[in-house]
């Protein structure tokens, strides 16, 4: 369409778009630059480049935030959640797409409604219930909470993928004597693998980044996630922003790398699921 636009208009358009990019990138650039500065340098001039890159900030952040352990906890809870969501979500989505049983519409509406409930509506009884059952500080129990919260979006996303598959493919397999489960797991599921990837990416990102649930249910030092450990860093070493920014970068880097490789999946997933962090 730009053949219809004058050169001047096009320039203004790009200037505004670039302004938006600067707004989006500026705080992130400050994070990266500050991660390489001493705290004295940051206080003296927040916008200057580091005289000598302080790689030691990363080593100190790694040690003080116990990254080896807290990152592993994040990986564990994220991995478990992704597996649980893909397994239970794809089955439920298949049922909602294929089986027109009575009540399935109401189940769909129920799932939809739970995506909009405030966490505070179920957080407190859940916490005291988990405490009674000794499930607080359990990574598996926490991943069940994430599964409950993030699976409705994955069910609806996968449902549209299942609906796009012609029923004839499955009918042929049924004729050959396959059970419903075999049709689902061998025939249909492989066909929706792009949808599964999107679900895994979004559920993984949300779990990796999540704060309210993890700070409430994973309090013990041994089970804290990287984000929760990072949060408690602020109070402890409040003046050392170089180190805090280095820790921030360690937590953010894997997600950004993932995003750059699979931006389509991120955008598709967040657009359809509309899960706000």
């Amino acid at each position: 369409m730009n053949h219809a636009i004058s050169r001047g208009t096009l320039t203004i358009t790009y200037v505004i778009l670039a302004l938006g990019a600067v707004v989006a990138l500026f705080p992130l650039a400050l994070m990266v630059v500050s991660a390489l500065k001493t705290s004295a340098e940051i206080v003296a001039d927040p916008l200057s480049l580091p005289h000598v890159p302080q790689w030691i900030n990363f080593a100190r952040a790694w040690r003080d935030a116990e990254m080896a352990r807290s990152l592993l906890n994040s990986v564990k809870v994220t991995g478990l959640t992704v597996v649980l969501i893909c397994a239970t979500g794809s089955m439920a989505a298949y049922a909602l797409a294929r089986q027109k049983v009575r009540g399935s519409r109401w189940i769909a509406v129920y799932f939809l409604a739970t995506t909009t409930l405030p966490i505070q509506l179920y957080l407190f009884p859940l916490y005291f219930g988990f405490a009674k059952l000794n499930l607080v500080d359990s990574i598996f129990a926490t991943s069940l909470i994430y599964t409950a919260i993030y699976s409705p979006f994955s069910i609806f996303l996968l449902r549209t993928y299942f609906l796009a598959i012609p029923v004839e493919i499955e009918e042929a397999a049924i004729m050959d004597g396959a059970t419903r489960w075999q049709v689902f797991s061998r025939v249909t599921l492989p066909l929706v693998s792009p949808g599964l990837l999107t679900v895994a990416v979004i559920a993984g990102m949300n779990t990796w980044n999540e704060f309210l649930i993890s700070t409430t249910f994973l309090q013990g030092h041994a089970v804290q996630t990287a984000v929760v450990r990072f949060y408690s860093m602020g109070g402890q070493y409040s003046s050392d922003w170089g180190e805090i920014m280095a820790a921030a970068l360690i937590i953010v880097a894997p997600m950004v790398a993932f995003f750059l490789v699979m931006q389509r999946r991120f955008i598709e997933g967040m657009a359809s699921g509309s899960v706000k962090g």
Binding site: A24, L25, L28, W208, N209, V227, M255, V256, M270
Partner: peptide, 9 residues
């Protein structure tokens, strides 16, 4: 990009 970064960070 800002939408994929942890809120705490």
């Amino acid at each position: 990009l800002p939408a994929i970064i942890a809120t705490v960070v």
